[in-house]
Amino acid sequence: MNLTISGHHLEVTPALREYVLTKLDRVTRHFDQVVDINVLLTVEKQKEKERRQRAEVTLHVKGRDIFVENSHEDLYAAIDQLMDKLDRQVCRHKDKVQDHHHASAKRLEVPAR
């Protein structure tokens, strides 16, 4: 698994990097077929003071790319909400992948009469 954590208008400190890694452990625990993860942390240079910290994740899994983004006043809160969204999407993707393994009609047992 390749992991890239980068910042835009922001220096990624070791504390931020460790926080993102601990939050990503929850996602990779559900689904272990993750190929690549790109995390982008951004401080937007806008006049409005609310919702100026943004976090984005692009998760490359077998058969699909999952993109999630979230904005908040606090970067840590944005990362928390982002990981909640990402966790839901990964679980939904895992369910879709696993639902295709149904037993065929030929293999179903027919009750004897």
Score class of each variant (00 low, 15 high):
R51T: 02
E11G: 08
E56S: 04
L41T: 00
Q53Y: 03
D95M: 10
V43Q: 11
F31G: 09
M83C: 12
Q33W: 08
H72Q: 07
P14V: 06
T22R: 15
D65W: 08
N70V: 00
D80N: 14
T22S: 13
D25N: 14
R113P: 11
I5R: 15
K47E: 10
Q46P: 02
R92D: 14
D65E: 10
E48P: 00
H60E: 06
H60L: 09
A78M: 05
E44M: 13
H9Q: 13
N2F: 04
Y19R: 07
D87H: 07
M1K: 12
A78K: 05
K23E: 09
I66Y: 09
R29W: 05
K23R: 15
D87N: 14
N70W: 12
A78I: 02
H30R: 10
E44C: 02
E11A: 12
Q89W: 06
Q89G: 00
A105N: 10
Y76L: 08
E69C: 04
H30P: 01
D87C: 03
E73F: 14
T13G: 11
V34P: 03
I66C: 03
M1V: 11
L82Y: 11
K106S: 15
E18T: 06
A103K: 15
V61G: 04
L108N: 12
H9F: 02
E69W: 13
S6R: 14
I5A: 08
Q53E: 11
F67N: 05
R107S: 15
V68L: 06
L75Y: 06
V97M: 14
Y19F: 15
H9S: 08
R52H: 10
H93E: 09
R17N: 14
V27F: 07
K96Q: 11
T22I: 05
D74F: 08
I66A: 01
P111H: 03
K49S: 06
A78E: 01
L21H: 13
G63A: 05
M83I: 09
R88K: 14
V57W: 06
R92S: 12
N2D: 10
H72R: 04
D65L: 13
L10R: 02
G7V: 05
R54P: 00
V39P: 02
L59K: 04
D32A: 10
P14G: 06
H9W: 03
V57Y: 10
H72K: 07
